[in-house]
């Protein structure tokens, strides 16, 4: 499973999006697609579990979890092995 597939899977389980994550454009505002603050925190924790990473405090912002491409960029930056 690719890194993006894993992110889509996490969003489908925890993101409360109105549609499948794979159908949401990478640059689209996930909060506009239904993600709540609670859901974004669950997404963060599930991403940490899935990629065995930990988001530092400075990344715990709306911007980090606002779009799929922002999430992917943060995961890439924190993962030991590049995609």
């Amino acid at each position: 499973m690719s890194r993006l597939d894993t992110i889509h899977g996490v969003l489908d389980t925890h993101g409360k999006l109105g549609s499948a994550a794979a159908t949401v454009p990478a640059g689209a505002d996930l909060f506009a697609h239904g993600m709540t603050s609670h859901a974004s925190v669950n997404v963060m924790l599930a991403l940490e579990d899935a990629f065995e990473i930990e988001f530092p405090d400075e990344l715990l912002t709306k911007a980090t979890f606002g779009t799929i491409e922002a999430i992917a960029a943060a995961v890439d930056a924190l993962s030991p092995v590049a995609a």
């Binding site: 924790l45 715990l60 912002t61 709306k62």
Partner: peptide
């Protein structure tokens, strides 16, 4: 989790 939720 709480700190993230507070921030968001």
């Amino acid at each position: 989790k709480q700190r993230s939720l507070y921030e968001l």
